[in-house]
Design a protein around this nucleic acid. Structure first.
Length: 289
DNA sequence: TTGTGTTTTATTGCCTCC
DNA sequence: GGAGGCAATAAAACACAA
């Protein structure tokens, strides 16, 4: 027992009943000199309200050294007081004790235990709050991760398309710069067979990449975004914005195809529509093998 | 009725404040 | 150094299923 510890009760036993000392701060006496063993032997119990006296006497006779529970009314009043202020000043303690027929020490102990219970509950509430907050954040995080993955795969896809279209555009520009412009040389023009061969080579390269990337086996290309089926003879796999103003689908019916001369039947037809500086020959086209 | 888990009341020891 | 708060703990009282 440490020195200078407070004194818990000033009491003596009258039979089995403990008679306590005189009031608040009034456990003047014996606690400091009792070791744990002694205090266990001399277990305390306290009186309750006045009307419990008979019960108390009954307990005293029949069940000595019993710990008494507070009555419902006492607890109710203590709860109200706790709700108003969870700390107990000496004055309020004395008044409450008198009002309830309890020892001030009992009131103090009740408040102490009540604060401990409140703290436990508060910790539980804080835990629940943090848990729900965490779950909410986790859910948001998951959806962001999914969205990120989706966007990443879109970026990969679009990069592939962009690369292909860049190469395509580069070849178109190279052909435009050629003097005389390759685009306006008719494939059947024997005067420039060599340049037409170059163009066909470029077109073949693009066509091959297109088919490889789509995995379509060469018969058709399906656009991943809108589900359109792009047939070789019509719609383009490339976005309009990339070749807009340069190339466009040609009405096959109005174009002479190599099918006419019995060559490869897997062909595509592309016209240089808007290169108006060469109006002299408005309908020139490539034939993709 | 009894075993077991929970709640309530009370004690102990340590700490801080004045 | 005394008063009082708090954490840890004991033990009685209580609740409840088997």
């Amino acid at each position: 027992m440490h020195s200078g510890s407070r004194l818990f009760f000033d009491g003596s036993y009258h039979g089995n009943m403990l008679v306590l000392g005189n009031g608040d701060n009034g456990f003047h006496g014996a606690r400091s000199v009792l070791n744990h063993e002694e205090s266990s032997k001399r277990r305390l119990f306290f009186s309750s309200s006045a009307e419990d006296i008979y019960d108390q006497e009954f307990y005293d006779e029949q069940l000595p050294e019993k710990k008494r529970r507070l009555t419902a009314d006492q607890v109710l009043m203590l709860e109200k007081s706790f709700e108003a202020e969870n700390k107990l000043e000496p004055d309020r303690k004395t008044k409450l004790a008198k009002k309830l027929g309890l020892q001030p020490r009992q009131v103090a102990v009740w408040f102490q235990n009540r604060r401990a219970r409140w703290k436990t509950k508060q910790l539980e509430r804080d835990y629940d709050l943090l848990k729900s907050s965490y779950n909410s954040l986790l859910s948001n995080y998951d959806s962001i991760v999914k969205e990120t993955e989706k966007l990443k795969s879109e970026v990969v896809l679009l990069n592939g398309k962009l690369q292909t279209s860049k190469e395509f555009t580069g070849m178109v520009e190279a052909a435009q710069k050629h003097d005389p412009p390759i685009l306006f040389k008719n494939k059947n023009d024997d005067d420039d067979t060599a340049t037409n061969d170059v163009l066909e080579d470029c077109a073949f390269k693009i066509k091959t990449e297109d088919h490889l990337s789509s995995g379509s086996g060469g018969s058709a290309v399906v656009d991943e975004h809108d589900g359109r089926q792009l047939v070789d003879s019509g719609d383009s796999y490339f976005p309009d914005s990339i070749y807009h103003g340069y190339m466009g689908p040609v009405d096959v019916a109005n174009v002479q195809s190599e099918e006419d001369d019995g060559s490869d039947d897997n062909q595509s037809y592309w016209a240089a529509e808007n290169l108006q500086e060469h109006d002299a020959e408005p309908l020139n086209w490539w034939i993709w093998p």
